[in-house]
Simulated scan of single mutants.
Amino acid sequence: MDDEELIRNVSTARRQKLGYGPHTAKDGAEAITLYLEANGQPFDLVIMDLTVPGGMGGKEAIARLRQLDPQVKAVVSSGYADDPSMANFSEHGFCGVTPKPFSFRDLSELLQIILGS
C-alpha cells in the first residue's frame, strides 16, 4: 500500500521478480477492501506506507486489519525514519519495518526474514 503510483509499480515488479503475486492499494481503505475480498485467504504479508496524505495511512489501517485478522503480517514503510511507528513498529501492530527508499536486496531480505525461504 502506497499513495505514490511509481512506488507501487516498482514494488510490484520487484515482488513479481521474487515470485510473489502482489496486489496494490493506494491507501489503507483500499488495502482493507482487498484483504476482505480475499475471502478468508489472508495475504502472506502486507507492506504499508505510514503516511498517506488525504487518505488512511498504515497506522490506522493496521489497527483495522488486526481487528479482521489478529494474525496478519504487516510491515510499515516510510521515508520518515524518525516517526515513532518506525522505531517501535511492533508496538503499533507491525512485524517489520523498511525505510524508504528500499532496494531490491532490502525487499528480498525482508521477505525472507518474515516469510522464510
Rank of each mutant, 00 (worst) to 15 (best):
E91W: 07
D106P: 01
P70I: 08
D3I: 01
G19C: 06
V10C: 03
A25C: 05
I47F: 07
E5K: 12
G19L: 05
L68S: 08
D49C: 05
N9E: 15
K26T: 07
T12I: 05
Q67M: 10
F89M: 11
V10E: 02
G93V: 08
G96I: 06
A61H: 00
E60F: 02
G40K: 02
A31Q: 02
G40S: 04
N9M: 15
A61E: 00
D69L: 08
R64N: 09
S78E: 04
C95E: 13
G58K: 02
T51S: 14
G57I: 00
E91S: 14
A81Q: 13
E37D: 14
V46D: 01
I7V: 15
Q67P: 01
E5N: 07
N39H: 12
S85W: 05
Y20G: 03
A74I: 11
Y80K: 11
G19M: 05
E37R: 10
P53F: 07
R15M: 14
T33Y: 06
Q16C: 09
L50I: 10
R105W: 04
E60W: 00
T12N: 11
I32A: 01
K59Y: 12
M86Q: 10
R105T: 13
G40I: 01
H23D: 14
Q67E: 10
A25I: 04
Q67D: 07
S77L: 07
A74G: 10
D44P: 10
L50N: 04
A29G: 04
V46N: 02
K17A: 11
G93F: 05
R105Q: 12
L36E: 13
T51V: 15
E4D: 14
F89L: 11
S77V: 10
A13D: 13
L45K: 12
A25S: 05
S77I: 08
D3H: 08
T98H: 05
G96W: 03
G116I: 13
F89K: 10
Q41S: 13
P99A: 15
T51W: 11
T24P: 01
V75N: 06
P42K: 12
P53W: 06
G54D: 08
G19R: 11
I62S: 03
I113V: 14
G40T: 01
Q41L: 11
T33W: 04
S90Q: 14
E4A: 13
G55R: 04
A61K: 01
V52D: 00
D44F: 13
D49S: 06
F102Q: 08
C95P: 11
A63L: 11
Q71I: 05
A25V: 04
S103H: 03
Q71F: 12
K26H: 08
A38D: 05
K17P: 00
D49G: 06
R64A: 11
P70F: 09
R14T: 03
V10G: 01
C95G: 10
R8D: 02
G55Y: 03
D106L: 04
T33A: 14
V76N: 03
R15H: 07
R14H: 10
K100N: 06
G93T: 08
